[in-house]
Simulated assay, not measured.
Amino acid sequence: MKSFVIALVMLTLVMSGTAFAAAPKDKPDKKGILVVAFGTSMPDAKKAIDNLVDSTKKAFPDTEVRLAYTSNIIRRKIAKEQNVNIPTPTSALAQMNDEGFTHVYVMPMHIIPGEEYDDIAGLVNGFAAVKGKYEFKELKLGRPYLSSAADCDLMADILMKRFAK
């Protein structure tokens, strides 16, 4: 019996080694952008989100662009009323990982860094900490639009020029 257990353990180790050796070390690069918004169920407001997603697709034509909403309430309302399922940032990143994306850039639509942005940052940091078979080669999080004093000054200049009258 002892020799049977030893043989079984050895076989398991050999088979594991073969599986590890057969796993591709370098998967081909596949880039994606995940636009993350709080979300909206209002059609007019949805146009603004769609415009940003469309602009991102035009700016990065060789990169797949996806959308996720942070609000579970909005996601459930859209699913119920429009029969459309919009993923959470967590499920969107997991899906992109499953589909072999190697480089993902998370673009938040937040105006200022706050609780929602901190939650996304924690999520991105968690995914970035994964090493080995399920890791992204690159996972980056963009900043909110007004995340520094310089950003606020620039926005103030833009608004002053736009509404100078």
Rank of each mutant, 00 (worst) to 15 (best):
D44S: 12
K165M: 09
E64F: 01
F136M: 04
D50F: 09
P24N: 03
M1F: 01
D54W: 06
M107R: 12
S147Q: 09
L141C: 12
P61M: 10
D44M: 15
A156P: 11
K46W: 03
D98N: 08
E115P: 11
D50L: 05
C152I: 11
L11F: 06
F127E: 05
T90G: 04
S16L: 04
P113Q: 00
T12I: 10
V124A: 06
E99N: 10
I158T: 06
V104I: 15
L123P: 15
L141T: 14
T90Y: 13
A128V: 15
K57V: 02
P87S: 01
I158H: 03
A22K: 14
M1I: 07
N83E: 10
F4C: 05
H103P: 05
A59L: 05
L123R: 04
G126S: 02
A79I: 13
M1L: 13
E138G: 14
A92E: 15
Y69T: 09
L34S: 06
G126T: 13
K77P: 02
I120F: 10
V106Y: 05
E81L: 08
K133L: 05
N83V: 07
F20K: 09
G39D: 02
M42A: 15
I33H: 06
V84F: 06
M1R: 02
D54R: 08
R143E: 15
Y145A: 07
S71G: 12
A59T: 04
D29H: 02
K30M: 13
V104T: 12
V106F: 06
K30F: 04
D44T: 14
E81T: 04
G17Q: 03
D29Y: 02
